[in-house]
Simulated scan of single mutants.
Amino acid sequence: MHGCVRSTLRNYQGSVRRFCDFLTNPAYGWSDQCLRHFGTHPGQVVYDRNATTHADEAEGEPERRAFTRPELEAFFDHADEEVLRARDKGRKGWLPAFRDATLFKAAYAYGLRRNETRMLDLTDFGRNPEGRESGEYGTLLVSYSKAEKESPPKRRSVLTVWHRTPGTTEEWISEVRPGMRHSPSRALWPSERGPRIGVQRLDSRFAAYRDAVGLDPALEFPSLHRSYITHLIEDGHDRLFVQQQVGHDHASTTAIYTCVSSDFRTRSLRRVLDATIEAALRPGRTS
Results as ranks from 00 to 15, higher is better:
202 L>S: 05
216 D>Q: 07
233 I>P: 05
206 F>C: 00
201 R>N: 05
248 H>E: 15
210 R>D: 02
250 H>D: 12
274 D>S: 15
213 V>N: 01
230 T>F: 03
246 V>C: 11
283 P>D: 03
253 T>M: 12
267 R>S: 02
261 S>I: 12
259 C>Q: 15
206 F>L: 00
282 R>W: 12
261 S>P: 14
278 E>L: 10
246 V>A: 09
225 H>R: 15
230 T>C: 04
234 E>M: 05
220 E>G: 09
233 I>Y: 06
214 G>P: 03
257 Y>E: 11
283 P>T: 04
208 A>L: 01
267 R>P: 00
278 E>R: 08
228 Y>S: 08
277 I>F: 10
256 I>R: 11
277 I>V: 14
218 A>L: 06
220 E>P: 01
241 F>V: 09
249 D>K: 04
281 L>C: 08
240 L>C: 12
251 A>E: 09
266 T>E: 15
216 D>I: 01
250 H>N: 14
271 R>M: 09
239 R>S: 04
234 E>L: 00
234 E>P: 03
216 D>A: 02
215 L>Y: 07
253 T>Q: 13
204 S>N: 02
241 F>W: 10
281 L>P: 02
259 C>V: 03
241 F>G: 02
266 T>P: 03
207 A>G: 04
225 H>P: 09
231 H>R: 05
220 E>W: 05
200 Q>D: 03
262 S>C: 07
252 S>N: 11
256 I>Q: 08
240 L>S: 12
238 D>K: 06
228 Y>C: 05
238 D>W: 12
250 H>W: 10
242 V>H: 10
230 T>Q: 04
282 R>P: 08
218 A>P: 10
234 E>H: 04
281 L>M: 07
221 F>P: 02
239 R>Q: 08
264 F>C: 07
212 A>Q: 03
247 G>D: 12
220 E>A: 11
205 R>A: 01
265 R>K: 15
